[in-house]
Design a protein around this nucleic acid. Structure first.
Lengths: 207, 207
DNA sequence: CCATTCTAGTTGACACTGTCAACTTCATTT
DNA sequence: AAATGAAGTTGACAGTGTCAACTAGAATGG
């Protein structure tokens, strides 16, 4: 089991941490298990990470990097609306292709962000991609006094995407007994309804 | 610290488990801590719960009970649409008033549902409330062949509500720097956009 | 060139955890 | 009265995070 001691232990620790989480789940992540697998002593990780939470934060930070880069690699469309749609699809695509990373970022009890500023920065960066995409879109009647409406629409869209993605992964979906085909239908329907909601410029005047 | 040994230890264990989670977080929940607080031996819980996961499942089951009853106690409205809206508001209200319970139900890595059928049943019951509410609503053009559309709209609405609720609680919201007032605005905006999306009966024909 | 300091790693210990096993108490049933 | 079974006990074991003290070796400074 014990591999060659790697040159860059810090990187190797994070790699191995992810593997452990993949195989045995995040609760089973332990310094000692990682150490054993890398053939180093149980205290070696402490030279690079102050605590178990710190290496978890590093793993999650990597997930945010991968997520942001996935969003940026979406196919570029000409119109703003289409581009936003592509971003939404890219979001859902990441959640489907990398459910573990997705859960780690959004469904796990994160280590307290205050103690892990690097992780926080990466998470803010990922969200900024969506917010900035919306900021260029003039989504509302500028007469109302709602500050920074793009941010609120970003919240709405993010919430919807996140809700769907996390619902699709959760055990709750088994509750519903949706087939694969029905899952696709549900996702399409969601995008259609979101389109409807976002195309209407008059949201501030409803009710 | 050690209280009087209670008559109904099983109930008391679940109560105390919830307290521990409240105080120290779900990862810090331990049989031994619960036992100490109740003044019983560290093995006493095993007479009532097969494992740590089983008591966690019991705690979460209670949350689903409280959640379902909160949804059922919503103000009843005359029209279907208004009643659905009330249910949505009740949903968000529960998430805001009982963030811990909400997280336990939807944001925690649940103990594998297969091993905890009682918890699963309670969770299905809660979702059925929303699905049944939608089932009476004739939300679509019946000409298309999409099976059980109410279920798909239930997914959409549930996803949006869950996404917003969990976003509001997550550290991500700190990222955005929304004030309390802005949070309210974001929630209102979400309901408005959802109304827009759901009022349009032609969703199946879009694009 | 030698002494010092710093870094990355080591071993050992401690308190904590879940869980298995064996024991005791005591009420219920036969 | 004997047997049974449930509820609770103590004891043990392996696993965990983390503190402390130690070591080998590289870098640094005079």
């Amino acid at each position: 089991m014990a591999k060659q001691k790697p040159d860059n232990l810090k990187e190797a620790l994070v790699d191995e941490a992810f593997s452990v989480i993949e195989e045995k789940g995040v609760e089973q992540l332990s310094f000692r298990e990682i150490s054993r697998r890398l053939g180093v002593s149980h205290q070696a990780p402490y030279k690079h990470f102050a605590s178990r939470d710190h290496i978890l934060a590093a793993v999650i930070g990597r997930c945010f990097d991968a997520f942001a880069s996935h969003l940026n690699n979406r196919p570029k469309a000409d119109s703003s609306v289409d581009d936003l749609r592509n971003m939404g699809l890219a979001y859902m695509g990441f959640a489907e292709q990398h459910p573990l990373m997705y859960r780690l970022m959004f469904n796990t009890a994160l280590p307290p962000v205050h103690d892990h500023p690097e992780m926080l920065a990466k998470s803010q960066h990922a969200f900024a991609l969506l917010r900035d995409r919306l900021a260029t879109m003039e989504l509302r009647d500028p007469a109302t006094d709602v500050p920074d409406p793009a941010r609120h629409d970003a919240v709405f869209i993010w919430a919807a995407l996140h809700g769907l993605a996390s619902l699709m992964q959760s055990d709750a979906i088994a509750t519903l007994g949706l087939s694969d085909r029905e899952r696709d239908i549900a996702r399409q329907r969601m995008f259609q309804r979101l389109s409807l909601a976002m195309h209407d410029q008059d949201v501030d005047r409803v009710e």
